[in-house]
Computed example of a mutant assay.
Amino acid sequence: MKNIVLIGFMGVGKGSVAREVIKHSDYIAIDTDDLIESMENRKIKSIFELEGEEYFRKLEKKVAHWLEQSVKDTLISTGGGFYKQKNIKKIGTIVLLDSPFDEIIKRIKEHPNALKKLKKRPLLQDLQKAKEIYDVRRPDYLKLADVVIDVTNKPALECARELLKKVKKL
C-alpha cells in the first residue's frame, strides 16, 4: 500500500468517497483542509478572509511537505487547489474525482446541508468565477492524475470501489 491522493474540484465528493474507501479497505484517511484548520485553529473561510489565498497556499505547501516526509499508507483528500503543490507526485498515487462543473454544483445544491456546504467554500461564492477556475484547473487535474474516476451520478460507494480496483492494478 502507498498513499492515495484524491484531487478534484471543490465539492466533487472527495470527502464522501474517502469515507467509503476507509470503510472498505485498510486505509486511514486525512484531509488537507482539516489539517490546515487544525494548524491554524480556525476555519478555511476565516483564513481566506483575514489572510488571503496566498497565505492559504503557503499553508498547503507546508502540509504537502509534511505529507511527503511523514505519511504512508493513507488516503489523502485535498482541497481543490492542492494539486499545484510541486511535490504532489511524491506523496502518492494521484486519483482525480472528475465531474462536469454543472453536476458538481447540482450535487452540492441537492445536499441536505447545501447552504452550509456553499458557505464554507470561499471560491464558490461567485459561480461564474468558480466556473472559470474549474475550466483552468480541469486540464491540469487530468494531466496530473494517475487514475481518473468519473463520479457523475454515481454514489460514493460505487466510486470508492472503482478507485480501489484501479489503484490495485497500478
Rank of each mutant, 00 (worst) to 15 (best):
E37T: 06
E40R: 15
A64N: 04
K154W: 03
V63A: 11
I94M: 00
I28C: 10
L164V: 04
L163D: 11
D146I: 00
E132T: 10
I94S: 02
V148P: 08
G52F: 02
E49P: 00
G80N: 06
E60K: 03
G52M: 04
R121P: 12
R121S: 07
R107K: 13
S16P: 00
S77G: 12
S38R: 14
A64M: 08
S46A: 14
H111P: 01
N41E: 14
Q85R: 13
Y141K: 03
L6R: 05
E132A: 14
I149M: 09
A156F: 11
Y141T: 09
I91D: 03
I94L: 05
I88F: 10
V148H: 02
M10Q: 06
K116L: 04
K109D: 10
Q125Y: 05
L144E: 12
S77F: 00
H65E: 15
H111A: 15
A29R: 06
L124W: 13
L96Y: 14
K2L: 13
G8E: 07
K154R: 13
V136P: 00
G15A: 13
A145M: 09
K165V: 07
D73A: 12
G80L: 02
I149S: 06
N41F: 07
K84P: 04
V147I: 15
L6K: 06
G11E: 05
V136Y: 01
R138G: 04
D26L: 12
F56E: 00
N41W: 03
E49V: 05
P139V: 08
A114W: 12
Y55K: 08
H24L: 00
L115A: 15
K58G: 11
